[in-house]
Design a protein around this nucleic acid. Structure first.
Lengths: 191, 191
DNA sequence: CCTGTCATGTAAGAAGTTACATGATTCA
DNA sequence: TGAATCATGTAACTTCTTACATGACAGG
């Protein structure tokens, strides 16, 4: 009976969220490995916890009563632990989802690096901005593919769709901003 | 002679950056307190390190040779430490500014909460989005004020201007997105 | 007299990353 | 034969936050 907290860390919440989705879809449970893969496949709207963190959190979810685990021995594959969310876990998650999002702590290092541009190298900054633009262009393409796939699959889930919309809009915004910024820097020859 | 690293943590970098600006403006140095205030006055483009972190980092900057400190005894105020960036510090900062920005680790909890919307409460999510929209509206106003102040002061610094532009564009993007998202959720009565 | 400013720090802990460690199976 | 997949974990470490602790002076 480890000491108990009742609030979820972001990573705990996100893991419980995936377990919650698995439950909705009638799956028998997910392993740490499954979860890690699921994260890796959701670019643009979710980050991936590291392995170390994942395997540190899973037993804690169980000890808090937010999930249960079941050992599955396999013939040709290593033994794995399948995790399922519990009622208590769903409640904790619901509470976390309802808690206000603390504002304004997004720390985008690109912006920081631009801000201090006078102390650094102009070409390096142009490179950073170009890379950000390219990433946004790539994300944009990828999201469009996702969007089409989801449509073809008859996927009508409102909320995931909203996050795709956001990713797409963010990408468009970023490409536009980056393009302008690059121009502004280039046309400011000779401080 | 503590063990040495040669890379800066984000917070170390940002502190050195402010010390670098102070140097450019011919100031005699900044105290932890000064730095904390400076951070607090740059909303939308910079986050503020906490006090605890600030006072933990400053001596480390000195022990790494990135800054020097000088004790200033004051008559009517507590004694303070003034920090100045060194040549080595400027080099370390320049290297940090030139290092690529690692991509895609922005974890916006709002998006996460929306993504898992089906496991939570619809009205809570509407509330989150509304709050985000209001924050963006407030930021937009504030940045416009900043922008006008900078213009009036004849401020021609390209880079800080670019970050203001970004903040403004981001705020506009967010207001637009949030408005659409709110509508989309409201008009989707009855799953 | 009370609140805010000036000014610095410590201690404890949460959150997260990186590197290490293992080992069978499958596919090219 | 070598790389990728499946599968789980530990240990050490960095980063950052929160709460605690102190104390003089200024302004209303």
């Amino acid at each position: 009976m480890g000491r108990s907290r009742d609030e979820l860390s972001p990573t705990e919440a996100v893991i419980l969220g995936l377990l919650g989705f698995a439950e909705l879809e009638g799956e028998q449970g997910m392993s740490g490995y499954d979860l890690l893969r699921a994260f890796a496949r959701s670019p643009g709207m979710m980050w991936a916890p590291t392995k170390g963190h994942m395997y540190a959190i899973l037993p804690r979810l169980v000890s808090q009563g937010w999930a249960t685990s079941r050992e599955v021995v396999q013939a040709k594959r290593p033994t794995k632990q399948l995790y399922r969310i519990t009622r208590k876990g769903r409640n904790a998650l619901r509470a976390w989802l309802a808690a206000p999002v603390e504002a304004g702590q997004e720390r985008d290092m690109l912006l920081v690096k631009i801000f201090f541009g006078d102390l650094g190298d102009r070409d390096a900054i142009l490179g950073h901005i170009a890379r950000r633009r390219e990433q946004a262009e790539a994300l944009r393409k990828q999201i469009r593919v996702f969007q089409r796939e989801a449509e073809r699959a008859g996927d009508q889930d409102l909320y995931p769709w909203l996050t795709r919309r956001h990713a797409l809009a963010w990408a468009n915004f970023t490409v536009r901003w980056a393009t302008e910024a690059e121009e502004a820097i280039r046309s400011s020859r000779g401080t």
